[in-house]
């Protein structure tokens, strides 16, 4: 059933990583991504891996959850690796058969790429696992605050994101309901050629859009009834406060980042 799909993938918990300020987590994740893609050498990957493992252990997220989000992308990863191995020339030839040639550079690039992406997936999924979507949008709004000076509607964007996230489960449930209702009228969604299948989505999509617009209108009215007028003079119920642990974690990240930078310059 559609209800089984989890989006946002927030995994509530009580670990140090969960309690961290979402702004810091977001910045650290960005630094982590840059760190991973900075160097061309295997050495420079080590810092990213250290960061990722550290965060994983501290977050107390079960490994199978991380594996779940990695598993989906394994086929793509395999294709990337195979392409890298066969298409990149350079270095010594490791294997040769007719026109197929595998070089040491190809193997190295493939290996680097696979490790990079695996660590990237594990590290970034950690962000969504330990941070509720609402906290995340809050953090984005705060971080983008300076853009308000050049009249970017940061608050409006953040509000839109929050609302969109809030309504994902609602719309999934709605889709489920509409699908069963149309099935009861003999609709089938898995028969016929591509065109027929696309057409069979109409009985789902039209009611879904109608109800989404209805909900949007109701929500807008409800917000207006409570005098919502954007971010002018608006205060927050959840205040983001940086604590000692946030500064400590940021310091560790910066040290790792700095060392990775030095390693990149040396090698």
């Amino acid at each position: 059933m559609l209800k089984d799909i989890t989006i946002g993938q927030f995994f509530p918990g009580d670990s140090a990583v969960h309690k961290m300020d979402a702004r810091f987590k977001l910045c650290m994740t960005l630094l982590f991504i840059v760190m991973l893609f900075m160097g061309k050498h295997l050495y420079s990957l080590i810092f990213g891996i250290v960061f990722c493992v550290l965060a994983l252990v501290l977050s107390k997220i079960p490994f199978r959850l991380i594996w779940k989000s990695i598993r989906v992308l394994l086929p793509i990863l395999a294709v990337t690796a195979v392409l890298d191995i066969f298409l990149i020339d350079g270095g010594d030839t490791v294997f040769k058969w007719h026109f197929i040639e595998i070089t040491s550079d190809g193997v190295k690039t493939a290996l680097l790429m696979v490790i990079r992406i695996l660590v990237l997936l594990a590290g970034t999924s950690l962000l969504t696992y330990t941070t509720s979507p609402i906290a995340l949008t809050d953090a984005i709004e705060r971080l983008l605050n300076p853009l308000k000076k050049i009249h970017v509607p940061v608050h409006a964007f953040a509000m839109m994101m929050t609302i969109a996230l809030r309504f994902i489960p609602t719309l999934l449930e709605e889709t489920d309901k509409i699908m069963t209702a149309q099935k009861a009228r003999g609709a089938s969604f898995s028969e016929g050629n591509l065109l027929q299948r696309a057409r069979s989505l109409v009985p789902i999509l039209v009611p879904l859009f109608v109800s989404a617009f209805r909900r949007a209108e109701e929500l807008a009215t409800a917000m207006e009834c409570r005098c919502y007028r954007g971010d002018v003079g608006r205060t927050k119920m959840r205040q983001l406060k940086a604590a000692g642990r946030d500064y400590a974690a940021m310091a560790v990240t910066l040290i790792l980042f700095g060392t990775a930078l030095v390693v990149k310059i040396i090698f």
Binding site: R185, G186, P203, V206
Partner: peptide, 28 residues
């Protein structure tokens, strides 16, 4: 079986999708 056992869900008006009343009734 679904044609023989008709099921009308709660708030069935939310499943309406066709351009005319006639065509919506004719869907089944």
């Amino acid at each position: 079986v679904r044609f023989r056992v008709g099921l009308v869900f709660q708030y069935p008006e939310y499943q309406i999708f066709e351009e005319t009343v006639f065509r919506d009734i004719a869907f089944g």
